[in-house]
Design a protein around this nucleic acid. Sequence first.
DNA 1: AAGATCAGCAACCGCATGTCA
DNA 2: CTGACATGCGGTTGCTGATCT
Length: 340
Amino acid sequence: MGRTPCCDKSGLKKGPWTAEEDQKLIDYIQKHGHGSWRSLPKNAGLARCGKSCRLRWINYLRPDIKRGRFSFEEEETIIQLHRILGNKWSTIASHLPGRTDNEIKNYWNTHIRKRLARMRVDHLGTHNCQLDQLSLCNPSALIMNLYRLLGLQPLLNRELVNIIAANLISSPQNSNQSINVGSRVLNNQQFIGQTLVSQQGLLQNQIQDQVLLTTQNARLGDDEVQFQQGEDTNFWNGVLSQIGDANELVNGQGIASSSNVDPYSLPQLTTESFSCFDGFTDDQINCSNLASAATASDSNNMNSPTSTFVNNNNSSAEDESCSDFLEFQIPDLFDLADYM
DNA sequence: AAGATCAGCAACCGCATGTCA
DNA sequence: CTGACATGCGGTTGCTGATCT
């Protein structure tokens, strides 16, 4: 049984809409609503398929449509939702008022996907540095890198890392400090162990993608990042030294890259391992702050007190900040149903 | 200056799903 | 329940302007 065409295609116009056709469609819908798309073209005096009218209205003519460049926040939303939902463009669009699924799809295909692909190539092809330079400008990325070096990244949830970091930073003098998790109080070791347990099997692919992106996004070309001299250099040397110590600490106990790690037998991560973060406030660890700061062209807004960004070109804050906004956190309480 | 190539985006197409008689 | 129809969705195409050679 053949499917009947959505409309009689003979004699119907295709291709770009003229201003006159647009006006006819607008006038008709404003007066009568769209009702049945199938019968609309005839009633409106348009030699178009109903489907074509619907598409034109939804994607271009409806009054609440938002034109123009995507904002940083919109782009971040698209990326995050896409990593959860995949190519569910209409669902993604429902979270971006005024944007259409078609527009988002096009934007993804022409901008974001290419950038991701480029960065992936960069990562696989040329990125051998253990600790990205950019991450030195970014405490949050630095924490991620630290964990990466510790071999924990496949099980990592950035939000939880931030909690760990915030707690550690808030009282660095206490090497056996407690960490508040809701109503529970754990020490570092217990907390990390429980974090690992809670992450196992939870959106594993997304988390692995997140880690890949975190590491590759933290990379900019070497000529794009410049560190101040003098004390700042010493500071960062200290950071690297501390991270080396932490790495050695864990490697020395033989668990660094094990995927079968017993989460309750992790070595104690001491505050000394994190002393490189002294001086950062909790706010500086916050992801959203990092993302918004990255949109600013003013290098003073970067979240490192000791680093300077140098822009080589006018490729916009968008490109230089992708390292931040592509990072993605999956809240533990995330419910996919909320997005469907 | 002209042709080639690329990038962006509007629009189309086919399929999936929902609705209703 | 079934089939026809309407609508929505996602992949793809093709046009247009910009950039490159």
